[in-house]
């Protein structure tokens, strides 16, 4: 069982490295070496495509967890930069403090104002610390609530980008009411009279994720995951072996495909060949198209219909028997 996306993608990363070197060599190649260098690049490209094909056609639940967590995967701010023509980040919960695991503010989507709220990871140690690994504290959810309210006031559709391992579980978060903050944020989303489209772009980590994911429409990228518990935590409970994350990932059915089957999301957004991180621009174009299609659909609904639509979607979630078993 690979433990990271790097380990799992190693053959691919090695080929991409060779390809990059070959491309660099082309730039300095003598005219008589050109044909051969180009041939070499074409050769590496073909081999790379084959490996992508093989790896990504065998993407099991655990591999999806690895890909969803991969550092080069586009994060919320990458999507925001790619999808919107303008964005002004607003900060603060006006109560306790600033939280950098959740970002948000008004943005322009194809000429119209929207409110975007997303969970933001970091790519290096400093960034990760600054973003608290995208694990929001109560003040993060309270900032989200403030932005949701503002969106409602100014009639801006809301777009949420979900990407968190979990809400912050620390002592400070407990004492400032992380549970209340998540619950209040979910409840606020049900109050809104504007359309909400939520997109799971990476890790949909339990309560931390649903705290900003209660949209009219919920979309998931092809390789994103959404789970009630991290697979390692599940494995620790089930088998007292966190290293059995792969088995737990399979048991939890945490893929977009399973979520769609159970009627818990509306649509799976395809990712570019080899995952969103191989072509972030193309990935963002697909996400943007998905958001716009669903917003266009929702624009036909009145304020009260939007709320009913949202309630109705969640109301029917669950699988149970109406016949007693005892």
């Amino acid at each position: 069982m690979a433990k990271s996306w790097k380990e799992w993608e190693r053959p691919l990363l090695e080929l991409e490295d060779l390809l990059a070197k070959a491309r660099a060599a082309l730039k300095t190649a003598e005219p008589e070496e050109m044909a051969q260098a180009e041939q070499k690049i074409a050769d590496f490209e073909r081999r790379r495509d084959n490996v992508v094909e093989v790896l990504y056609s065998r993407l099991g639940p655990w591999e999806k967890v690895l890909v969803a967590r991969a550092e080069p995967r586009p994060y919320a701010l990458d999507y925001i930069a790619a999808m919107f023509t303008d964005f002004i980040e607003l900060d603060g919960d006006r109560r306790f403090g600033a939280d950098h695991a959740i970002v948000g503010g008004p943005a322009m989507l194809s000429g119209r104002g929207v409110m975007v709220v997303g969970q933001q990871k970091g790519r290096n140690i400093q960034e990760r610390q600054f973003r608290n690994f995208a694990m929001a504290k109560p003040e993060g959810y309270r900032k989200a609530i403030r932005l949701f309210e503002m969106a409602d006031r100014f009639k801006l559709p809301v777009i949420t980008l979900v990407d968190t391992p979990a809400a912050d579980p620390g002592v400070e978060s407990e004492s400032r009411g992380i549970s209340e903050a998540i619950a209040a944020s979910i409840m606020k989303m049900f109050e809104l009279r504007v359309p909400i489209v939520s997109v799971v772009i990476g890790e949909g980590g339990s309560g931390g994720a649903i705290g900003i994911a209660a949209g009219n429409r919920v979309l998931m990228q092809e390789h994103a995951v959404y789970s009630v518990i991290p697979p390692e935590g599940c494995a620790a409970i089930l088998w007292r072996m966190p290293e059995k994350g792969a088995q737990a990932a399979a048991a939890l059915k945490l893929t977009a495909q399973s979520a769609h089957e159970f009627g818990l999301i509306h649509e799976i957004l395809p990712e570019p060949f080899g995952g969103a991180h191989r072509d972030p621009a193309a990935a963002a174009a697909i996400v943007k198209d998905g958001i716009e299609r669903h917003l266009a659909d929702l624009s036909k609904l009145s304020e009260s219909e939007l709320r009913e639509d949202r309630y109705g979607f969640y109301r029917k979630m669950g699988r149970f028997n109406e016949v007693s078993r005892v």
């Binding site: 979910i186 409840m187 339990s206 994911a213 959404y226 009630v228 949202r310 669950g318």
Partner: peptide, 22 residues
């Protein structure tokens, strides 16, 4: 939430919270 029902359990959080709003 009940781990054994996966995401279906997580979604009960949203469903029940929406009902409080009612």
């Amino acid at each position: 939430a009940r781990m054994q029902e996966g995401l279906l359990s997580l979604m009960q959080m949203a469903k029940t919270t929406a009902a409080v709003q009612r």
